[in-house]
């Protein structure tokens, strides 16, 4: 059978979530989390909830990423695990 496009988006989501948690560099981790939120917004748009999709793209991928990068400016970038 032919898989729907949401199957591929879900596989990308799981890969980005695992890599964001496993990578040692915290700035790369935050960048991957922003990508995760953007793919989640694409998945919401594909499921027919456009209002949630653009709120997730603006707040989840935009504001949260800016918050995390600004906080990382005062913290150290390396992580032990």
């Amino acid at each position: 059978m032919i898989w729907q496009i949401d199957f591929y988006l879900l596989v990308i989501l799981i890969i980005t979530a695992v890599v964001a948690l496993e990578i040692r560099d915290l700035l790369a981790s935050v960048a991957l989390l922003t990508g995760y939120s953007f793919f989640m917004a694409l998945l919401f748009a594909q499921m027919g909830s456009v209002d949630v999709a653009f709120t997730e793209a603006a707040l989840g991928a935009g504001v949260t990423g800016v918050f995390l990068v600004c906080a990382l400016f005062f913290l150290e970038r390396r992580s032990a695990d």
Partner: peptide
């Protein structure tokens, strides 16, 4: 062990509940 990693895990958990 890193506290920022814990926060990232929490964001992933919340987004999964939204999904």
């Amino acid at each position: 062990r890193n506290l920022l990693k814990k926060l990232i895990g929490m964001i992933v958990f919340q987004t999964a509940v939204f999904l």
